[in-house]
Design a protein around this nucleic acid. Sequence first.
DNA 1: CGTCACGATTAGAGCGCTCTAATAGCACTC
DNA 2: GAGTGCTATTAGAGCGCTCTAATCGTGACG
Lengths: 335, 335
Amino acid sequence: MASRPTMEDVAARAGVSRALVSLVMRGAPNVSQARRDAVFKAAEELGYSPHAMARSLASRTSTVLGVMVSDLHNPFFAEVVDGLEAVARKEGFELIINTGRRTPAGERQAVRSLLSFRPAGLALLGPAVAAAEIEAAADQVPVVLVARATRLGSVDTVNDDGRAGSELAVDHLVELGHRRIVHFDGGRGSQSALRRRGYLDGMKKHGLAASVIRSEYTDVAGAKAVKTLLERDEPLPTGIVAANDINAIGAISALEEAGLRVPEDVSVIGYDNTSLAALAHVGMTTVDQPRHAMGRLAAQAVLERVRNGRTEPVRHLLHPKVVHRHTTAPPPAAQ
Amino acid sequence: MASRPTMEDVAARAGVSRALVSLVMRGAPNVSQARRDAVFKAAEELGYSPHAMARSLASRTSTVLGVMVSDLHNPFFAEVVDGLEAVARKEGFELIINTGRRTPAGERQAVRSLLSFRPAGLALLGPAVAAAEIEAAADQVPVVLVARATRLGSVDTVNDDGRAGSELAVDHLVELGHRRIVHFDGGRGSQSALRRRGYLDGMKKHGLAASVIRSEYTDVAGAKAVKTLLERDEPLPTGIVAANDINAIGAISALEEAGLRVPEDVSVIGYDNTSLAALAHVGMTTVDQPRHAMGRLAAQAVLERVRNGRTEPVRHLLHPKVVHRHTTAPPPAAQ
DNA sequence: CGTCACGATTAGAGCGCTCTAATAGCACTC
DNA sequence: GAGTGCTATTAGAGCGCTCTAATCGTGACG
């Protein structure tokens, strides 16, 4: 693990000045072909590669993007990071990642630690940290928020339109002919309020009576919500707009256990389009949340500020889409 | 976005030298309380925070760990990264992440790009890159490989013992009383050969006749393997060791569709312990692959080399465990 | 043949920090 | 009152690079 050669070493070997090596490494024009070749040859022989941090320090520019993930364990964010990385990489940037360990204090520390690298920009994924902290960061560097809204005029945001997504789910069921449609909500989970709002708006739009059952983002909660439904004195709904895919899978199992067929007797639509929904034997109709695209847009937003110096905030509100599979169908009889 | 204050600014404001500010920032002893307070006060007032790259350059040390992920989209690696991050963070290191876009050329570029930051160490997750490239990297910096074996004496490795895991699966079924046990293999998927080997060894150990059905890491393939089984002229096996959880879920669906009950008629055990297996209505018995622990071990291996200067390679072969849930039970009748 | 213009090359300062070696301060001793 | 042995502080070089401004060729031109 010998210490690596520097530009000075390459210069000496190629018989040129350090400045010339620098120019060659940066692909500058106005360098004679002869010298260029000599420099590359010397670099190759010595196994030289530029020192990104020294370059960054000297040029007062950065090629790293800081990414704070509230919870990398969550596949949602992992896919967003994947999208971020795709764009960053293509544009010559690297990602430096920190997680917030799901606490505001942890996130705060993560953001500060990220800023100590003087990144070109910062992407905060699902941050729970205080707005003041975000604002402070935005004073130093372009910031984009994913899966979090804000009033701050200095930061960009990329969000999925949970309200619209739920409304689409309702539209889908109504189109199939359903009229008794209930919503299992996500309790205090993130996005839960928006999805509930979308369901309520959708039902109202179609002139239908809404009914929300308090639930959670778990399969157990979905199953429990079905039991609640079955114990009621009212006619069973023919359609269920579940809080998310996991909740939907729980609901489906409980329905089947109760002797009801999906989708013949009851249609169920999920939310998120996780890999779970795509499983052949599940084949769940669900609302797709374009995670990868969200990551890409976030990276683009930051890079626009870095490169073009844009200052007006950008608000991306992604329109989710219904993915048609096999857990929804027309209701059992014309109502 | 004004340019940020430097150590010099803090020194001037606190009425001390730059060197003293440096000492305070690094928490050095032998600094009088009065000066220490003055420096912190000035730093606070100016909103100063140290410049990590400048520090790294001057001290010739690094606090970043390079991570090359063959495919961050894959939840397996996302969880390994999560484990890496947990240890790195605790030890004061940051992760800088690059993906290889699933091609050796992409990985090669990713590794080089990572090395240009002169990281303290490098973790390669599921790398497909050539051994020579790994060796070249290992000449410059401590390297740990996750989910890839190597003969190189200069790098550490962290792998799950797929052979042992499959053998455990067989043991589990045998303990329950099964004797006719088949294996649905993972085709040309990674780890597939090892898992098959483990199954074969396990069956041999118990003096049972082995039977492998060629399959894949998908639910569709698992279902198809069950159909193959049903079309055979032989008595149905009572136990199935599936290639992984996804394959197992496909097998379970197909069995149920054929009117067989799991686990009353047939027991099925998966592999990986994905979130899928843990779903309440799935409740799959499976072999756990400790992804988070693998990430933690990888980080520790690198940091040991960085800090303690260890040079002998470490080979972590993680022993998987069977997670008992509800898709395995004693066979229908004593055989 | 001197001068000019212009492309190719280089010297040298400096990015923000750390680190070594030197110095300042200060209580004690003899 | 000079010397000793501390600890607290600082000057200054230097990490590997970029960037500005200066310099060096060299061919065209009058």
